[in-house]
């Protein structure tokens, strides 16, 4: 079963070549090269400050928001360069959705939260918007819990529901890739396992890159794992191999809990 899955040829989705990121004079990432396959879950693990979130934020250019940040190297998304000034960041972010560590629904109704993305991209047809909202909430496994109160505030939901609302909101703009920055780190175990189940379902249709502090979580949800340490990509491979038979001593020390 496992071998069958790994044998299955997954197309290349993101290709990173010699990526370095600087914050002012500090270098946060050193010469990272890595290929991320399509429609799989790739986990980025490593201790705090190792650069995994910085790496994730390169894929939708969120590092642009930090004036001192500078990115060098190449990132190809399905063969298209996404770094550089000529790239349309708005189109890129439409293709690459993101879910944040702290759930951040807008202080609006559940409906308006999900409808926000399609609306800013110019959709006006009310029926079509309603359809997208329902569809996105279903994909995020939230529809049954909120269908009777779509017009109540998104802030009134529980933490786990808020995070699934944020996932629905991201899905509503029909991205191909979903970036998740420690999506369950602020949630209780039950909500966490719901999110994990959801990730398992979503990977059928989306390429998912997830940053996590929780190694069991990485082992449970991902097919590929990349271990970062102090800005370097130490090891990258099949999740099973990285956790059970790592090539690098540092990886082994980290995944067995000897540091971090």
């Amino acid at each position: 079963m496992v071998t069958a899955q790994t044998q299955e040829a997954h197309e290349l989705c993101i290709s990173v070549k010699n990526l370095s990121v600087f914050y002012g004079d500090n270098q946060a990432l050193f010469d990272i090269s890595m290929d991320i396959p399509e429609k799989e879950v790739t986990a980025l693990i490593g201790p705090s400050g190792c650069g995994k979130s910085t790496f994730l934020r390169c894929f939708n250019r969120m590092n642009d928001l930090i004036p001192s940040a500078r990115v060098e190297g190449e990132i190809l998304l399905k063969g298209n360069q996404i770094l550089g000034n000529s790239v349309d960041v708005v189109t890129l972010r439409k293709r690459v959705g993101m879910v944040f560590q702290r759930s951040n629904p807008f202080p609006k109704s559940i409906f308006e939260n999900v409808a926000y993305g399609p609306k800013i991209h110019g959709l006006r047809d009310r029926n079509k918007i309603e359809e997208i909202v329902e569809d996105s909430l279903k994909k995020a496994d939230l529809w049954n819990e909120v269908k009777d109160r779509l017009h109540t505030s998104g802030i009134g939901l529980s933490g786990g529901q808020q995070q699934r609302l944020c996932i629905a909101r991201a899905l509503a703009v029909e991205p191909q890739i979903l970036l998740m920055d420690e999506p369950a780190s602020a949630l209780d175990p039950r909500s966490t396992s719901k999110i994990e189940e959801l990730i398992g379902v979503l990977k059928e249709n989306y390429t998912i890159v997830i940053v996590t502090h929780n190694m069991q979580q990485a082992a449970r949800v991902s097919q590929k794992t990349a271990f970062f340490y102090e800005g370097y990509l130490i090891e990258y491979g099949e999740t099973e191999q990285v956790f059970q038979n790592p090539n690098e001593k540092q990886t082994e020390d980290y995944v067995t809990g000897r540091f971090g």
Binding site: N60, M62, L65, R93, G97, I120, C166
Partner: peptide, 19 residues
């Protein structure tokens, strides 16, 4: 978080500020 969420959905800076 509101700014980041809006920008990450592909909103422009102005759309984010306005909405």
């Amino acid at each position: 978080g509101f700014r980041e969420a809006s920008l990450a959905l592909g909103a422009t800076k102005w759309q984010t500020v306005w909405n």
